[in-house]
Every structure is written in structure tokens, then in C-alpha cells.
């Protein structure tokens, strides 16, 4: 049976209006908007969907979600379980706040190893909070496993000895044959994660995550080694100089807009 590890990160909801996005410049932190729950990073949900599609295609597999963080919203982190993932492993540790990408990759690698390893590690192409796209790539280095980034389609070949992958490339895509085990990052072109049905939600409610701390993993101190320090975090101010075109009604506004753009030689 194929063991698939999907790395998933809890991030602030990206769907809030930019006006609600606030940072604490002193504490160098993002202030979560009141009453808006976090989400599982959207690209990581695409990765969960990729795993579920392998199962749909008849590949016998166990799908385990791994996440490193703290202050987890359990009902949020259980979303992958509700659509079909089998287990959830949380490395829940305040120290994760100060991990850099390499530290996070080391923690994930150790958690996956402790869980018996994986034949395929999937993750989103990047996390929508810090937009780095480092962790899965570093994970492939640590695990010495082949890496394919920006996967938009994933299947197993007939004999089950390798993966057939399509990855997004400039002006098209590439077909790649990838050996097992491997690390892959998944992009939104693969398609959105499916919706949970009631049965799935009920099943997820009953499942409990396996929770551990970084110390439990026995990999020593991986917290921020001070190679890179944030010294400033701010929301850039963009000064609006919009000229609103207002006609008698919306259609008239549209007509006037065309005339104005021609006058300004923009069309």
C-alpha cells in the first residue's frame, strides 16, 4: 500500500478584504481579523485533492496529513480528514513560531520518519502567508528524494513503480516520469479540493489527531538559528487617484468610460 504524506499549513484566511488585513508593526506579526477563522493553505488542499484522486484512480493508499504549528483550530485542520484523508499528525509547539523554513522541513521530515516514512510527500506550491515555497524543496533535500514542483496532474503508471506527472511550465506543461519515493509540490491548476459530505464530516469529528511537540521528535534544537531576522513588517500605502466615471446610469457610465479612455489614448 502506498503511503502518502501531505504537508498542510494553517494560515490566515486569504479571502478577507485587504482593508481588514492589519499588522502589528511593533511585534512584527499579522493581526488575525476578529471572527474570521484560519484556513488550511489553499495550495495544500490542492495537494490533498491530488492524493484523493490517486485513490479514486484505484491506487491503494493511506493518506496522512502532517502539520507543524501552534494554536491549531482543530475543526479547520480536520478538513482534509472530512474529504477522505485517513489520519492527522500535528506537531503542536509554540517554538514552531520561530522556525525558519529549514527548521520546519527538518521537523516535518522527522515527523514523517517517526510515522514510518512515506512513498510520496505532497505539499502545496507555497503557503499563502509568507509565500516562500521553501519547505517542500528543502524536505526533498533532507529526505534525499526526487522533487517535482508545480504538479497539475498526478497518476501512477500501470505497474505501480513510478508516478506519471504533469507539471506547469512556461507556455505549457511538461510530462515527467518520477521514481518512488518522491516529494512534489502541487499547484492550483490541479483543481480545487472536493467538498466534504455529511458522512465525511461526521467521520472526521470522531477522529482525533496524533499530537506531539518538537522535543518528542528527538532532533535537538531546530528553532530559529538567527540566520535571518525580520526587522520590519508593514502594509504599504497605495494612494488612490482613481477618477470615477459616472453617467446617468450604469450603461451610460460604460459609454462615457470608452470615450474617456480613447481621449486619454489608452485604447
Amino acid at each position: 500500500m502506498l503511503k502518502i504524506a501531505v504537508c498542510a499549513k494553517q494560515v490566515p484566511d486569504t479571502d478577507i478584504p485587504p482593508s481588514q488585513f492589519k499588522v502589528d508593526e511593533g511585534a512584527l506579526r499579522v493581526i488575525p481579523p476578529a471572527g474570521v477563522p484560519p484556513i488550511v493553505n489553499g495550495f495544500d488542499m490542492n495537494a490533498v485533492e491530488a492524493a484523493l484522486r490517486l485513490r479514486d484512480a484505484g491506487v491503494e493508499c493511506e493518506i496522512v496529513i502532517f502539520s507543524v504549528g501552534t494554536e491549531f483550530a482543530l475543526d479547520v485542520m480536520k478538513k482534509p480528514l472530512a474529504i477522505g484523508a485517513d489520519r492527522l499528525v500535528l506537531v503542536d509547539d509554540e517554538a514552531s513560531e520561530s522556525l525558519d523554513a529549514l527548521g520546519t522541513a527538518r521537523v516535518l521530515a522527522a515527523a514523517i520518519e517517526r510515522d514510518g516514512g512515506a512513498d510520496l510527500v505532497l505539499a502545496g506550491r507555497q503557503a499563502s502567508d509568507w509565500d516562500q515555497a521553501h519547505v517542500p524543496i528543502m524536505l526533498s533535500e533532507i529526505m534525499s528524494a526526487p522533487l517535482v514542483t508545480l504538479v497539475r496532474n498526478l497518476a501512477m503508471n500501470g505497474g505501480g513503480e513510478s508516478f506519471e506527472v504533469e507539471r506547469v511550465a512556461e507556455g505549457g506543461f511538461q510530462r515527467i516520469e518520477c521514481p518512488i519515493p518522491a516529494v512534489m509540490t502541487v499547484t492550483n491548476e490541479l483543481g480545487e479540493a472536493r467538498y466534504a459530505n455529511l458522512r465525511g464530516i461526521m467521520a472526521a469529528t470522531r477522529k482525533q489527531p496524533e499530537t506531539m511537540t518538537i522535543a518528542d521528535l528527538g532532533i535537538g534544537d531546530v528553532a530559529n538559528n538567527g540566520k535571518l531576522e525580520m526587522t520590519r513588517l508593514f502594509v504599504p500605502i497605495s494612494e488612490s487617484n482613481v477618477e470615477f466615471i459616472e453617467g446617468e446610469d450604469e450603461a451610460d457610465s460604460g459609454r462615457l468610460l470608452a470615450l474617456r479612455l480613447r481621449e486619454a489614448k489608452l485604447i
Binding site: S19, V242, F244, E250, A251, S253, G254, R255
Partner: peptide, 27 residues
């Protein structure tokens, strides 16, 4: 209040379904 207007040079506040046909016809 949409964020796009804080970056835009010209804007029309309205339903695209009414603005677009008139805009296209004028173009």
C-alpha cells in the same frame, strides 16, 4: 470599496452586465 479602485486610474462603480455591453458598443 473594492481594493482594485485604490490602484485604478479610472473606475466605474456598477454592475458589469450593464456597463460592459455599453462599453463594448461604444468601443
Amino acid at each position: 470599496e473594492a481594493n482594485i479602485f485604490s490602484h485604478a486610474r479610472y473606475g466605474v462603480v456598477g454592475d458589469w452586465a450593464k456597463v460592459l455591453p455599453a462599453f463594448t458598443a461604444a468601443v
